[in-house]
Design a protein around this nucleic acid. Structure first.
Lengths: 194, 194
DNA sequence: GTCTATAAGTAGATAGAC
DNA sequence: GTCTATCTACTTATAGAC
């Protein structure tokens, strides 16, 4: 016998090794982040996840349950990110700004997705974003010392995130790693001052 | 005769001196900014403006026309703002940051409203925001000199705007005028350096 | 110009077959 | 577990009376 894993699932249903639940949440996040809250209908999510609407509703009984699923996964992602931030070789400030640049990592995609839910007036989503901010901010304040400087760094990261969520990519205020390197140098001059 | 203005409108329909068209656009912006894109249905807008759905659709033949109306007013508001920025006694940088703090002025409300439309994947709204950014950025670059510092200031302003649109007010990273005064001092130290 | 009534389409959610 | 078919509610837009 070839090792006793996964009693029912053959090996690779559609995406490699992801459960149906995870594939549905992935699809929901993708549609939210890449298109809009309105585009993330149950039917569209189901189609993208490769199941029917009924199939989706078996795993998540309502759209609210879908949102809860995203928020739960985010909480875990966030925890991991704060640990990475704490132990980053180039320090938390650089890590924070580096990872705020528009890219394709999972955490950013979830945040954009949740920001879209927040704008669609989902209070749970707003709270989740506020929680994340508080976490990052306390990390920044711990290393930067000055409260105001930490908050400024926070705002810069916020600006980068939200711009990438709202504007066509071509209009990003910062474009690439080089820009961010300059920004980090600038901010570190700021934080080294007080 | 008392001067040849407004052949048909008596003087004050409901709001002081505003035309039905303007009242409808006000209502649309209010619902977008205070609630969400989804909340700004034709029926809700009509109710808030004090007309029926049919009455609204007489003035704006479709929801798209309503969006166009908001975008046109914004273009005018923006032009005025850039002039104020240019001639601000405390300088464009301070003006920009000062007016980025969450408050109740018209310009901010329109921007939040348009940001909501942009997130609902309205390309015209995204373009309008990108245009505004370009305008402000060129003003900042003109006085600051350093391109990167100007962009950093821009990002800080963006962060403030979007936070006020996304998060419960209590969670604002910056709370009051005092915070912003400190931030301005910080940023001016930055821009005076290069 | 502003209204009511209604058409046409789409959303989320339920029921029940397989 | 996953599907199809269907219900109900809501949204945009039209038609036509006043």
């Amino acid at each position: 016998m070839p090792s006793p894993v996964a009693p029912a699932s053959p090996a690779t249903p559609t995406a490699p090794g992801r459960s149906v639940r995870d594939r549905i949440l992935d699809a929901f996040e993708d549609l939210l982040a890449e298109h809009s809250e309105r585009a993330a209908t149950l039917e569209a999510v189901a189609a993208r996840a490769g199941v029917s609407k009924g199939g989706l509703l078996y795993h998540f009984a309502s759209k609210d349950a879908l949102v809860d699923g995203v928020l739960e996964r985010f909480a875990a992602d966030l925890e991991r990110d704060v640990e990475h931030m704490r132990s980053a070789p180039d320090g938390p400030v650089s890590y924070f700004l580096r990872t705020s640049i528009p890219s394709d990592n999972r955490l950013e995609r979830v945040i954009v997705a949740i920001a879209r839910l927040a704008q669609a007036s989902d209070a749970r989503a707003s709270d989740a974003l506020a929680d994340a901010q508080r976490l990052w901010l306390s990390e920044l304040e711990a290393v930067v010392g000055d409260r105001m400087v930490a908050r400024t760094i926070m705002l810069i990261g916020d600006g980068m995130y939200y711009n990438s969520a709202l504007l066509p990519a071509a209009n990003a205020v910062l474009r690439d790693e080089t820009d961010v390197q300059q920004l980090i140098a600038l901010v570190e001059r700021l934080s080294a001052r007080d």
